[in-house]
Design a protein around this nucleic acid. Structure first.
Lengths: 226, 226
DNA sequence: AATTGACTAATTTTGAAATTTGGTCATACG
DNA sequence: CGTATGACCAAATTTCAAAATTAGTCAATT
């Protein structure tokens, strides 16, 4: 079997697993279900992933990666999207239409199961709601509101993201996303239009950061991807 | 037995229960433990509360009430404390030194047990992190930033409060409280110093609101209180 | 009249047996 | 050949009934 066929099968397995995870939750998805759903034998699943956890984690990684790839594409057209208010609004919207990414960010025990207590999952959560490098970057480019340290800004960013993801009112997703933008813009960013050079530098750095994450994930997915 | 002695005993029971709840969590606190700790018979506990849940709920109510009473005292000296940024900062600080109020706001299942799924608890959570009346009040007094509806402001207030309570970084409690103040001030409040008359009216209304809550709770606590 | 703790019904815990499921690998297959 | 498979086994989970604990009551006691 060639690499392309093998990768296609890996993706079919991930598709089935993702579907089952969203529909039934971590505990109720068995490897037998996955194998049956993908029309293959159970042993074949283990030709791609060593354990059940590794398979489920690969599903989450692929979802997060797809979101990052979309963000990378948007970022290429519009560097201003790298600013925290706009970036977090975009992440909020993109995550809202991806149940598994949402589950990841909300630590949904029903869907994540034992992965909810995994350190890799904790890392991914941090990564997606403002990591340290990103905040240092903002500070370096003078894009942080004067008086804010990267650490304070990080706490605010983390808290606000967590709160907005967790709180589900009657408002539409876009209305909530716009409010998130407002809060972060007024709270974290300096007054006035940011200098285009700083924004460009930030966008480059964010692009590099996201690309690095995507590469690491792609490597971990191994031959299962592409 | 006169009312004062009876109330004193009720408070002793609540003291013991509060202590045990914080130390051991909901599931591990038995009525026998409480009775023994308060040096009375088990039946005596039931002379004050009909069920175990009612006793535990009374503990939480008393804690929340004490916090509100402190806020009412502070509010009397300083009407500006009724503004959302300052009020939520005060609630954040006051709750942070009250483990049971913190558990209430964080829906801590370990400490709240089955109460975590109680509707009265959900109501109390809403009450303490910005209720609807409060937001209407802000709107009426023109203290909300132009463009914000009470419902949008309510969503922001709820999300931000939830996020700040849940997120525990390396920052000190006061640093986090100050950041909470900043976020809410910049996000919810109109620019410039608020008119003293509006602030006074708001403070009066908030005082009325809190007093009403305290009265209701006091009534529910019944002869157990005062 | 107020308090109590022995008592009971209901809930929770325990543990062992039965079932399910993750992971392996000798066999079948193309 | 190398790849895919499902019968197989150990480990984990579920089941279920017996044992233990505990919420709530109330006749006896103070």
């Amino acid at each position: 079997m060639n690499d392309a066929t093998r990768a296609a099968r890996a993706h079919r397995i991930l598709d089935v697993t993702a579907e089952l995870l969203v529909r039934h939750g971590y505990k109720r998805v068995t490897i037998d279900d996955v194998a049956t759903g993908a029309d293959i034998g159970k042993g074949t699943v283990y030709l791609h992933w060593r354990t059940r956890e590794a398979l489920f984690w690969a599903v989450l990684q692929r979802e997060a990666m797809r979101m990052l790839e979309q963000l990378l594409a948007d970022l290429a057209d519009d560097p201003g999207l790298a600013l925290p208010s706009r970036l977090m609004r975009a992440i909020f919207l993109a995550a809202s239409e991806r149940p598994l990414v949402l589950a990841l960010l909300l630590s949904d025990a029903e869907i994540l199961g034992s992965l909810a207590r995994d350190s890799a999952v904790a890392d991914a959560q941090k990564e997606l709601s403002g990591n340290e490098n990103y905040l240092e970057l903002l500070a370096e480019q003078g894009l942080l509101r004067p008086g804010l340290t990267p650490s304070s800004a990080g706490y605010v960013l983390g808290s606000v993201m967590r709160g907005f993801f967790a709180e589900t009112g009657e408002l539409s997703v876009t209305a909530r996303a716009d409010l998130l933008h407002d809060v972060l813009h007024r709270t974290l960013e300096a007054d006035g239009a940011p200098p285009a050079t700083a924004v460009a530098a930030l966008a480059d750095a964010v692009t590099g950061l996201f690309t690095a994450i995507v590469s690491v994930q792609r490597a971990q997915l191994g031959s299962a991807y592409q």
